[in-house]
Amino acid sequence: MTNTPHGLGPTRARVLALLQAATEPTSVVEVADELDLHKNSARFHLDALVDAGYAERAVNATGTQGRPPLVFSATSEAPSISNLHLTELVQVLISSFIEPTDDARARAEGAGRTWGASVAAQEQPSGEALSELAVHLGERGFGTTQDAASVTFTRCPFRSTIEPEQLPLVCSMHRGFLDGYLDAFGSNLVTDELQIGPKLCHATFEVASDDAERSA
């Protein structure tokens, strides 16, 4: 999955997320109250979203005297702020097509290899394999540090969102991603060990056995 950054600041993203979750157009006062903003600040962010094409404004005809308030709603062109739909999709696919099988972990790892290879196929191999791999992991929400033979995961976007019983399968998928990417990149490295910790995970790599035998 490719995640397109929405490019919005934190407050404006919260305003857009509120509009996307609303079941009816929302007024400036409602946005300000819900997000604990000043009305002028709420209006500023709403107007900016309209200018960007991410929201539209309309007049809420109440039928009472006085100037009718403006209301706002998100447009279909607005980027998705919440990832809940993607998280639930992942969990449904795992529970339906991977968990029930006898070789669940192997199947998850195979899917990850396909995923990693597809990412590598989108570019011309250049630079150092693990450095390029770390860049792609960062684009997918992982925090990483790396050296010549290992990558440490300092942040995992799935740890706090996926059901705990499904996390081992997600980890297997990520191990497959590492190997699929490295293989398609043309690297001779493979994952030696993926250590899963309560906060940090650590992947170490070794030269593939065929390459090691040829070198000997």
Results as ranks from 00 to 15, higher is better:
residue 81 I to P: 04
residue 84 L to H: 11
residue 84 L to E: 15
residue 85 H to F: 01
residue 88 E to M: 09
residue 92 V to W: 03
residue 93 L to K: 05
residue 96 S to H: 11
residue 97 F to D: 15
residue 98 I to T: 12
residue 99 E to S: 12
residue 99 E to D: 13
residue 99 E to G: 01
residue 100 P to N: 09
residue 101 T to E: 15
residue 101 T to S: 14
residue 101 T to R: 13
residue 101 T to Q: 14
residue 102 D to M: 05
residue 104 A to P: 10
residue 104 A to L: 03
residue 105 R to C: 09
residue 106 A to F: 00
residue 107 R to F: 02
residue 108 A to N: 08
residue 108 A to P: 06
residue 110 G to T: 14
residue 112 G to K: 01
residue 113 R to V: 05
residue 113 R to Q: 15
residue 115 W to P: 13
residue 116 G to M: 09
residue 121 A to D: 15
residue 121 A to E: 15
residue 123 E to R: 08
residue 123 E to W: 00
residue 125 P to N: 07
residue 125 P to Q: 06
residue 125 P to H: 03
residue 126 S to H: 07
residue 126 S to A: 13
residue 127 G to P: 10
residue 127 G to H: 03
residue 128 E to N: 05
residue 129 A to G: 02
residue 132 E to V: 04
residue 132 E to D: 10
residue 132 E to A: 02
residue 133 L to C: 04
residue 134 A to I: 03
residue 134 A to R: 06
residue 135 V to K: 07
residue 137 L to M: 07
residue 138 G to W: 00
residue 140 R to M: 09
residue 141 G to C: 09
residue 142 F to Y: 13
residue 146 Q to G: 08
residue 146 Q to M: 10
residue 147 D to Y: 00
residue 148 A to E: 15
residue 149 A to E: 15
residue 153 F to M: 12
residue 153 F to T: 13
residue 155 R to P: 02
residue 156 C to I: 04
residue 158 F to P: 10
residue 159 R to H: 05
residue 159 R to K: 10
residue 159 R to G: 08
residue 166 Q to A: 10
residue 166 Q to F: 05
residue 166 Q to V: 03
residue 167 L to Y: 13
residue 167 L to T: 11
residue 167 L to V: 12
residue 176 G to E: 13
residue 178 L to D: 14
residue 178 L to R: 08
residue 180 G to P: 11
residue 183 D to I: 01
residue 184 A to L: 06
residue 184 A to F: 00
residue 185 F to W: 11
residue 187 S to H: 03
residue 187 S to I: 01
residue 187 S to N: 00
residue 188 N to F: 00
residue 188 N to R: 05
residue 190 V to D: 14
